[in-house]
Write a protein that binds this DNA or RNA. Structure first.
Lengths: 340, 340
DNA sequence: CAAATTTTGAGGTACGTACCTCAAAAAGAG
DNA sequence: CTCTTTTTGAGGTACGTACCTCAAAATTTG
C-alpha cells in the first residue's frame, strides 16, 4: 500500500501536524525537523496523493487560452478542441476557457494579462507575438503565482517560459527535404509565401527551409518571401508577379497557418499543376486541397495535442511538478493523402 | 460550484442514501425513484467526482502489458516507455507492468490471460497474434470485469475490443505514396520484406501499399513479400536472390518492426544507394540509418503515445467511460532526417 | 532559574464519495 | 385492516490530505 501522511509521521518520528507543516511549508518548524521529515519522505517513498489534496483544498484548475481576435480556420479548430478537451478534463477538476484579444497590440495583451486575478485563473496559454511588454507581463504573472506558457507563437528565447508548439526550424527543414525529394531531378525556383515575416514562426520556418535547401538541393532556388498581410487582392498580385517574373517555379511553400488565400492564388496560376506545393496546418481547406492533389503535403501540428499539452504543462506547474518532456514535445506531422 | 451528491439528493427529492443506491447500482430502489434521480442528474448536470470516489473506494488501477518474449529494439523501447509512463501515472493511482510470454503459442497466451485474478489486475494490453484461443480468452476476461485492449497486433475484426496502434493499411498506403514520390519518374521493381506474412499488421500494410502502388504508380512493380523469419542468414539469402533475379530494383519497403536485419542486407547490395528504402518504427538503428541516408523515411508510431493511449483507454473502460476517440487515434508519423 | 518564545503534538472538522446499519415509512399480501 | 415485505431516510465511519485551535513540551533569553 502506498504510504500516507500518517506513515510518514511514524517514519519521521514526528506528529501528523508537523508533517503537515513541512509538506505545506508552514512556519514554525526547526530546520532539523524539516530534514528528518524530508529524509523519511525519501526513505519510505512518500508521494502526496494529489487527488486527496485537491479534494481537501477544494482545488479546481482554471486555465485560460489567450488568442488573437482575427484568425484562420486553424484557430477555429484550436478553439473547438479547447471546448472538447475542457469537457474531457472536467473529471480532473480542470476547466479551460478562451479569451480573444487584439494580439497585434502588445499593450492590450499585456493589460489583459495584468488584469487577471489570482482567484480567477491558475494558468494562461498565450498566443501573441513576442514583444517586450508581453514578455514582461508574462513574467509578472508568474511572479504572482499564475503560470504562463507560450502557445505556438512568441516563445521568448532567453526565458524559461514553457513553449507549446512544434520546432519551427525543423518544420521548415522538413518541408524543404520533402519538397526537394518530391521535385526530383528538376531545377528551378521555389515560391515562399507567408502572411507576414514579422511572425517568429515564419522566420524560423524560413531559416530551416533555406538551410536544407542550400545544403541538399543546390538546383532549387527559394525566392524571397512574399508577404500577403492577409489580403486576398494583394496575395493574388504578389503571386502573379512572382510567376511572371520567374518562369521556372517548380515548388511553393506556404509558411503561415493561413494557407487558403496563398494556395488558391498559386493553384490558379497557369502550369501550377506541376508545382510541388506544401503548406502548414490541417484545416478543411488544406485537407480538401491535399485530396485534390492541389497540395502535395501538409506540415501539421495536432490541435488536440497542442491544447492538451498546454493544459498538462500548466497543471504540472500548478502542482510544482516537472512536465514529462518526452510527452510534451509536439511532433511535426507530415500529412499525405493516405495518412490524413 | 460543481454539484455534489448532496445537491443531487435535494434536486431529486430523495435522501443521500437513495442517491448512493442509484449511483452505485445497489438493489432495493423502485424504478420510479431511479428515474427521478437520473432525471435530476441530467437536470443539474451532476458528474461523479472520480477522484473522491476512488479515494473512498481506495481504488488503484493495475494494468498489465502482455508482450512477446522475443522482440526487437522497438519492443525494448515500448517497455522502457511503460516504466516511464507508469512512474508519471502514480499520481493518478495507476500502475502498469509488463509480463512477457511466448506469444507464438496462443494457448500460453490464453492460459496467462485466464490466470489473471480480478484482484490482481484491472486491465490488460495484449500484444499477440489474433487467434481464436486468444480472442476467446480476451472475451472471457472482459466478462470477468477485467478490461482488455489489443496492443499493436491482433485486432480482432469482428470484436468490439479496443485496439491501440496505427491503421496499418493507411501506413502501407503512406509508404507507397512516399516511395512513389521519392523514386520519381524511374521505373522498376520494389522489394518488400517482412519478418513473417503471418502477422496481421504485415498483411494490412502490404495491402495498403499495393493499393496505392497499383493506383498511382503503374511504373513501379512491388515484388512478392520476402519473409525473413527473423534469421539473419536467411534474410541475407532471400534479399541477395531478389537482387540478382531483379536487376531493376528501385525501392525497398520493410514491413515489419524488426528492420535491422533486412535493411542491413539491402544496403549491402551493390547499387543499393540508389534504392529508395522505407522501414517502420523508430529505433536506434533506423534512426542512425536515416541520418546516414541509408533509409529515406521511417513510418513510425510513437511508443509513448501507444503506451499512454492503452492506459487511458483501460482507465476509461474501468470507469465505464467512453475514451476520447480523437485523442486515442494513433497517428502515422513520417520521419525524415529533419523531423527526427 | 524563571520567564518568554519557539517548536511540537493532539485533536478536531472538512472535502466528495462509498458503504454500512438501523429504523421509519410506504407498498403489497392476506 | 393487519402483517409482511419492500423501499426510503437518517446517521455514522472511512479514504488521504488540508487547515485550524489549543495545550504541552522544548528551547532560548534575561
Amino acid at each position: 500500500m502506498r504510504p500516507t501522511t500518517k506513515d510518514l509521521a511514524v517514519a519521521a518520528g514526528v506528529s501528523l501536524a508537523t508533517v503537515d507543516r513541512v509538506l505545506n511549508g508552514r512556519p514554525g518548524v526547526k530546520q532539523h525537523t524539516i530534514e528528518k521529515v524530508s529524509e523519511a519522505i525519501r526513505k519510505i517513498g512518500f508521494e502526496r496523493n494529489i487527488s486527496a489534496a485537491n479534494l481537501a483544498k477544494q482545488k479546481t484548475y482554471t486555465f485560460l487560452f489567450l488568442f488573437p481576435e482575427t484568425g484562420d480556420e486553424f484557430l477555429d479548430e484550436l478553439i473547438f478542441k479547447i471546448r472538447e478537451v475542457s469537457q474531457a478534463f472536467t473529471a480532473d477538476m480542470i476547466s479551460a476557457d478562451v479569451r480573444r484579444i487584439d494580439a497585434s497590440d502588445p499593450h492590450k495583451v499585456a493589460n489583459c494579462l495584468a488584469g487577471l486575478g489570482n482567484d480567477e485563473v491558475d494558468g494562461v496559454a498565450v498566443m501573441a507575438p513576442e514583444t517586450p511588454p508581453v514578455r514582461d507581463a508574462m513574467n509578472r504573472l508568474t511572479e504572482r503565482g499564475i503560470r504562463a506558457v507560450s502557445f505556438l507563437s512568441g516563445r521568448p528565447q532567453n526565458s524559461d517560459t514553457d513553449y507549446v508548439g512544434i520546432d519551427n526550424h525543423a518544420a521548415g527543414a522538413t518541408s524543404a527535404h520533402l519538397m526537394g525529394r518530391f521535385i526530383g531531378p528538376k531545377k528551378g525556383s521555389i515560391l515562399v509565401v507567408t502572411e507576414t515575416m514579422q511572425a517568429r514562426d515564419s522566420i524560423e520556418r524560413r531559416l530551416g527551409f533555406d538551410a536544407v535547401m542550400n545544403r541538399d538541393y543546390p538546383d532549387l532556388h527559394p525566392l524571397p518571401s512574399l508577404e500577403t498581410y492577409g489580403h486576398q487582392e494583394r496575395t493574388q498580385l504578389v503571386v502573379a508577379n512572382a510567376f511572371s517574373n520567374n518562369s521556372d517555379i517548380v515548388g511553393a511553400y506556404v509558411l503561415s497557418a493561413e494557407a487558403r488565400t496563398p494556395v488558391e492564388a498559386i493553384i490558379g496560376m497557369p502550369g501550377a499543376s506541376d508545382v510541388v506545393c506544401i503548406a502548414h496546418e490541417r484545416t478543411p481547406f488544406t485537407e480538401s486541397a491535399l485530396k485534390a492533389n492541389q497540395l502535395d503535403a501538409i506540415i501539421a501540428q495536432n490541435p488536440g495535442h497542442l491544447v492538451r499539452s498546454a493544459i498538462r504543462i500548466l497543471r504540472a506547474r500548478c502542482d510544482s511538478r516537472e512536465p514529462l518532456a518526452s510527452q510534451e514535445k509536439i511532433r511535426i506531422e507530415i500529412l499525405l493523402k493516405d495518412n490524413l
